[in-house]
Amino acid sequence: MIPGVMSAVHVRPNALKMPPSYAIASVDHALKLAIVLQLEGSLTVTAAAERLGVARSTAHRLLQMLVYRDFAVQDDDRVYRAGPVLGPAAHPPSRTAELRAAALPHLQRLSAALDESVNVSILSGDTTRFIASVECQRVLGVTTREGMVFPLHRTTTGMLRLASLSDPDLLEYVERHADTRRSGRRALLRDVAQVRRAGFALNVERSEKGLVAIGVPVSWVGSGLVTGLSVSLPLVRYDERQLDRYVALLRAASAALSRDLRGHAAHATSF
């Protein structure tokens, strides 16, 4: 087993994400709230409404349904928290919430600079979980990744993690998770080698057909979270000649976010 990577979460390793033909907004909203509760620990009705972009009455009904089904509980102070169905989160909720709050201003600036959708994700077991996204304003763009979960080898943050492993641990992961065909294993090892050389990850249709992502690591020493910052865009708009620009802007945003996170940690320890 890869050190620090659990195998309790099982995701179909070769399944691309495909949005449903007839999405049900209320179900999607409820699932998003459940994910936020598990990752961040608590929500008020007002905060839930803001996160979903819906009326407070709608957010209240969604949260009440989560309580009814034990996905949430409500405290005496009327704050909603993760219920018994969700179980303990893989990461300290306070750290995840802190990361999301610190990342959002950087995501907004980065999305404006690139005119594309951008994301922050963390490792969760042997998967990557997206905890914050800012969508671009283009008609043809990548929708929010927030709350979505993929195997490591399907995301840029996961590929960065795989690139940091020793060769034996990497080979073990490849045998357990990569495409069962020999060509799939060779392709993954080739891509990981490229990540090691370049210091960033390029994901061409690994997570979704027609989607390209470019990602860099975010340094947050002592947090216990392995974090990555990425831009996602349609394959038809990807221009390889712009790759250096994408990476430079991502690295600048990552460095700025890392500084903010260190500043938050220093401020917290001063009290």
Rank of each mutant, 00 (worst) to 15 (best):
P19V: 01
P20V: 06
P20I: 02
S21C: 02
S21Y: 00
S21L: 05
S21W: 01
Y22E: 12
Y22V: 12
A23C: 05
I24K: 08
I24N: 08
I24P: 00
A25T: 09
A25D: 10
A25V: 10
S26H: 12
S26C: 05
S26R: 15
D28F: 01
D28A: 13
D28I: 02
H29G: 09
H29M: 10
A30N: 03
A30Q: 14
A30T: 08
A30L: 10
A30M: 13
L31C: 07
L31M: 07
L31N: 10
K32D: 00
L33R: 05
A34K: 02
A34D: 01
A34H: 04
I35K: 06
V36M: 03
L37V: 08
L37M: 07
Q38P: 00
Q38F: 00
L39W: 00
L39M: 02
L39R: 11
E40G: 08
E40Q: 12
E40M: 09
G41F: 00
G41Y: 00
G41I: 04
S42E: 15
S42N: 10
S42M: 07
L43A: 06
T44F: 00
T44D: 11
V45F: 03
V45R: 14
V45L: 11
V45N: 11
T46I: 02
A47K: 12
A47L: 03
A48F: 00
A48G: 13
A48D: 04
A49F: 04
A49R: 06
E50S: 15
E50Y: 06
R51T: 13
R51S: 12
R51I: 11
R51K: 13
R51G: 05
R51N: 09
L52D: 09
L52T: 11
L52W: 02
G53N: 05
G53V: 02
G53C: 05
G53S: 07
V54H: 12
V54L: 10
A55P: 10
A55G: 11
A55Q: 14
R56Q: 15
R56Y: 01
R56S: 14
R56V: 14
S57V: 14
S57A: 14
T58H: 06
A59S: 08
A59H: 05
A59D: 09
H60G: 05
H60Y: 13
H60P: 04
R61A: 15
R61S: 14
L62E: 10
L62Q: 11
L63H: 07
L63Y: 02
Q64W: 02
M65N: 13
L66N: 05
L66V: 04
L66H: 05
V67L: 09
V67K: 14
V67S: 04
Y68Q: 14
Y68F: 08
R69F: 04
R69D: 11
D70G: 05
F71T: 01
A72D: 10
V73F: 04
V73I: 10
V73H: 08
Q74I: 15
D75H: 07
D75S: 15
D75M: 11
D76G: 15
D76I: 13
D77A: 13
D77Y: 00
D77N: 14
R78E: 15
R78P: 07
R78L: 15
V79N: 10
Y80S: 12
Y80I: 11
A82E: 02
A82K: 03
